[in-house]
Structures are given as C-alpha cells and as structure tokens.
Design a protein around this nucleic acid. Structure first.
Length: 493
RNA sequence: GGCGGCAUGGCCAAGUGGCUAAGGCAACGGUCUGCAAAACCGUUAUUCCCCGGUUCGAAUCCGGGUGCCGCCUCCA
C-alpha cells in the first residue's frame, strides 16, 4: 500500500511517487508577516505539519521549506500607520508566529527563508524571464506576460479570456494584458527599496516562492502546498514563472487545505470574522484545536464555533481518560514492541486490535492523509482498552498489564503523528481545569474546599449534604468523580 | 458572468460501485455506584438533498433540479 495524494493539478488522487525514492521535497507557502495569525493560518500550519510528520513516519527523508513574506504592500501599510520600518513589523509578527506555532506543537520546517534574503535570486529570475521574452519592463516595473505562457491557468483551471471578462480589478495601464502580474515593482519614495537593473524597487509577491523553492529544493520538486485561496493567482503565477524560466515541471503534487469558516463563511481578515490563535489558546489547549481541525478532512471546509470546539475537546478528554486509567493501573508505559501472549477471547480481541492499529491508522493516512478516519481508529482502540479494563477483576496478570501498556503505547505512537496525546493525562486535565476556572473566574481553592467538605460529609454518611455540595459544584460546571483513592473534580467542557 | 467544491442519523464527520453506512458529541435504557461521575453494554440513518438514468447491484457513476460555499482583488 502506498500513499495517495489528491493533486489540485489533475483534480484526482494520485499514487505518491516522489522524484527521488525515499526523499521528499516540499514547499508550503507561509504567512505574510503583517499581523497576528488566526485559526485559518493555524489550519494550514497544522495540516502541513501532519503531512510532514507523516511522511517522516513513513520513512521518507523530508526537506520541508516554508517561507515568510517579509516585504509586501500590507506590511508597508502597517509600518506607515505605526511610523516604523516595515522590516521591524515583519520581525515582530514572525516572532509572534513562532510563539503561536510552538504552542500549537507545529514542528519547525527544515528551512524558513524570508523573501528579503533572496533579492538577488529574484532579480536573476526576472532577468531570465525578460531574456526569454516571458516578461517585460515598463517604468521600472517588470511584468510577466501571461499570454506567452501557454499553460497559464492549468492549476486553477480557468481560461485567460474568462478571467479578463470577469476581472473585478481596475486595469493597470502599464500592463499589456490585464492578467499580467508584477515580478518587480518600482518603489515609491518612502518605501523600502533594493537596487535592480530596472532601478530602485522591490519584488512582486509570487516571485519569492519561485526563487526560494528552486534554491532549496531544486527546479522540480515533489509537493507544493498552501491554502485553497492561494491556487489563484499565487500558485498559478508561481508555475508560470518557474516553468517559463526553467523549462521543466515545477511542483509535481499540489496540495491545498480548505478554509476555516465561521457560520459557514470563510474566516478572513477582510470579513473581520476571525479569531487569532492566541485568543483561542486562552480558552482551549493547543491539542484541542489540533483535534478539532484534524477531525475533518484537510480539503473540506470546517466550521469553527464554541460548540464544535467543545465537542472536539470532549473527544480528546476521552482519549486522555483512557491513557490516564491505563497508566494508573500499570504504571508508566513501556516501549517494548512485542505483544504478550495470553488466554481468553477478550485478551485476544484486544491483542488483535492493537496489532492492527498502526496498520489501519496508516491505511487511512496513506489515503490522502485522512486524519478523520485515522482518528476514528484511535477512538476504537481507546474503547477496546477501556472495555478490557472493565472486564478485569482484581489485580491484572503481568500479561494483561503488558497488553494494556502496549495498547496505550500504540495509541500514543499513532496520535503523535497528529501531534496529539503529547502530554501526561495529569497535566492535560490540570491545564484543562485551570483554563476553565480562569474563564469562569473561579478559584481552585474554592473548589478544593467544597470537595473536602463533601468528602467529610460522605465519611459521615451525610448524603444529603454531600449531594447538596455536588449540586452546587455542578452549577459551576464542576463534575465530581468518586474513586477508590478519593474524589476528583474536573470542569465540564 | 466564468470556474471549482459541497449536500450522509439530533449535531459533527468518514465512506466514491457490492461484507451489517466508521468514529466522535448529544439523548435515552442497562451494568457499576450510598446517589452520581467516569467506564462498559444497548438503543437512535432499511438509508445517504430531490427527480430521472446506467448497472445483477449506487450514498458512491451519468443527466437534470434545488440549496449552500469558495475562487476570479490582498488572503492559509
């Protein structure tokens, strides 16, 4: 069984065959650093983080490049508003991006180049395109002539004529064709500028990705990704520039993630209906956002809401609950990889399930990174582990302990590819409680005090008082669990 | 206007020609419990937006319709 990937270019799932066996070169468009990132950015980052992790998990040697756009109109605008330097604005938001990504557990790519570090390469690329007559210069601007590139529109599947007819943007006089796009822009007096053969100026948006990808990954590489909104014009233009300049196919597989919606509408800066990552992390743990986003297929839209996050959170709690129960019973889990032999149908049932778990997980992930289906198998394994524990009477046999330990080990191993179950259950629930108490403006000591009082009441067999306290706590969304070793409390999601 | 996508139980969500339509959340019943919670067991879609067609057989393919969304302007 091999990996299959949906390729935007062909509109189909295709078997994944990298250009070099065992090695994957992938490029994902990163952010324009002019503001804080929102959940939409988080989705893209997490989706490609999972793809990256999974390819490594499958044994590929992966070179992963994700860029920062650190010079562009929006950054300049922001700098002017704050009377500061555009590069400082970019620096600030790149820092913020790193903070957010680290909290979300998004692994660092192999290389994270910035556009301004590749000005000479971009100028060289523009020069090549002019030489090959794919581009022309007007008053210090360089434009790519889309008509010269016969494949223009092959990614977004549109025809040049249709686009011109439907164009909603004012036509720039300098351009020969309204769809032509800038490779190099002459700079205005107060803007950042670099010297070039066409005078002082700065690069256009699209050319940075062409320049940087070829630098790190070669002129032809395996996977190019980004949000669906980048298909046109950004990725279409990258293809045009790169293939026109180099004369060979640019990226082999084009992978695009769907949007995060708010009430069925795309979350975006311009609509103003966005939540920043840090806003969300004030209320929810990073893994909650991850499991929420990974519960749908990466290409489908996903609706972000309080309810859907709470639902995802309860699912994650369920998994942590299982891990916690097992670890309490059998201690910290071993990493032995041999499943124990044992008697009984229940033992065999669980053993088989554990044995198959990784394979099933892999089958789903191989099928265009179907994280939702893969998660389904993790829940099945979780339930099987709970069921097995329920069936135990008294102290488990060594083989049974070992089986449980192996089960949790396997569960966590798969979950790690999704960046889930990375905490100890204790820490997870502690943080969960902390966040919710903070949101409800409650103090942990108050809760502890009531719980202690109830424990005393229970000792005295004063059930009426005990239940009264439990009701009081329930009204504060605090749920109690009386266990052999004492009462625990947690906040209801 | 052009192009693309989506429609599956109360909600979320896998499934793209054929075993009993995954899984999660919610609800209800049971086991457990002082009572609960957690956990487990069971129940909740003879049916996949509607109408036709292809096929021995379709949620899955084709045609038409309805509804929603996205891109075509910066956007993950």
């Amino acid at each position: 069984m091999s990996i299959r990937i949906y390729n935007t270019l062909s509109g189909k799932k295709e078997p994944f065959e990298p250009l070099q066996p065992d090695r994957v070169h992938m490029y994902v468009c990163g952010i324009t650093a002019y503001d804080l990132c929102h959940v939409g950015h988080a989705r893209s980052a997490i989706v490609f983080d999972v793809i990256y992790r999974y390819l490594i998990h499958r044994g590929f040697d992966v070179v992963f490049v994700r860029n920062f756009t650190d010079i562009d109109d929006k950054i300049i605008k922001r700098a002017q508003e704050e009377s500061t330097d555009p590069l400082l604005i970019a620096e600030r938001y790149i820092e913020a991006f790193y903070e957010d990504m680290d909290r979300l557990g998004v692994a660092r790519p192999t290389y994270e180049p910035r556009a301004t570090q590749f000005i000479p390469e971009m100028i060289a690329l523009a020069e090549t395109l002019i030489e090959k007559e794919y581009a022309y210069q007007v008053d210090g601007n360089v434009y790519f002539a889309v008509e010269k590139f016969s494949d223009y529109g092959k990614l977004s599947k549109r025809k040049l004529d249709d686009m011109i007819a439907g164009a909603r943007v004012a036509i720039e006089e300098n351009k020969r064709n309204p769809m032509d796009f800038a490779l190099w822009k002459a700079s205005k007096p107060d803007e950042p500028a670099w010297p070039s053969p066409w005078g002082q100026g700065r690069p256009g948006w699209h050319i940075e990705c062409s320049a940087m990808s070829s630098k790190y990954l070669g002129r032809s590489f395996d996977i190019h990704g980004g949000g669906k909104d980048l298909i046109f014009p950004h990725h279409e233009n990258e293809i045009a520039q790169s293939e026109a300049a180099h004369g060979i196919n640019f990226a082999k597989y084009w992978v695009h993630n769907g949007f995060v919606n708010i009430e069925q509408e795309k979350m975006s800066k311009s609509l103003g209906n966005f939540f920043t990552i840090r806003e969300v992390l004030e209320r929810y743990q990073p893994e909650v956002l991850r499991i929420f986003l990974l519960s749908s297929h990466y290409r489908s839209p996903v609706d972000f809401s309080r309810e859907s996050m709470a639902e995802a959170e309860r699912g994650l709690e369920r998994l942590y609950q299982t891990v916690g129960q097992v670890e309490e019973r059998v201690g910290l889990v071993t990493e032995k990889d041999v499943l124990p032999a044992g008697e009984g149908s229940e033992f065999k049932e669980l053993r088989d399930l554990i044995e198959d778990a990784s394979g099933r997980f892999q089958e789903e992930m191989d099928d265009d990174f179907n994280t939702a289906a893969a998660l389904g198998h993790l829940f099945e394994l979780s339930r099987a582990l709970n069921r097995f524990q329920d069936g135990l009477s008294g102290k488990p046999e060594p083989a049974e302990q070992d089986l449980l330990a192996q089960g949790v080990h396997r569960l966590r191993e798969c979950a790690a590819v999704l960046g889930l179950l990375q905490q100890s259950p204790k820490d997870f629930f502690r943080e969960h409680n902390r966040l919710f108490l903070a949101a409800m403006d409650l103090k942990e000591e108050e809760v502890e005090k009531l719980v202690a009082e109830r424990t005393q009441a229970r000792k005295d067999k004063n059930w009426a008082r005990a239940d009264e306290i439990r009701d009081t706590l329930a009204a504060m969304s605090i749920i109690l669990e009386d266990r052999p070793d004492g009462t625990r409390w947690r906040v209801k999601s």
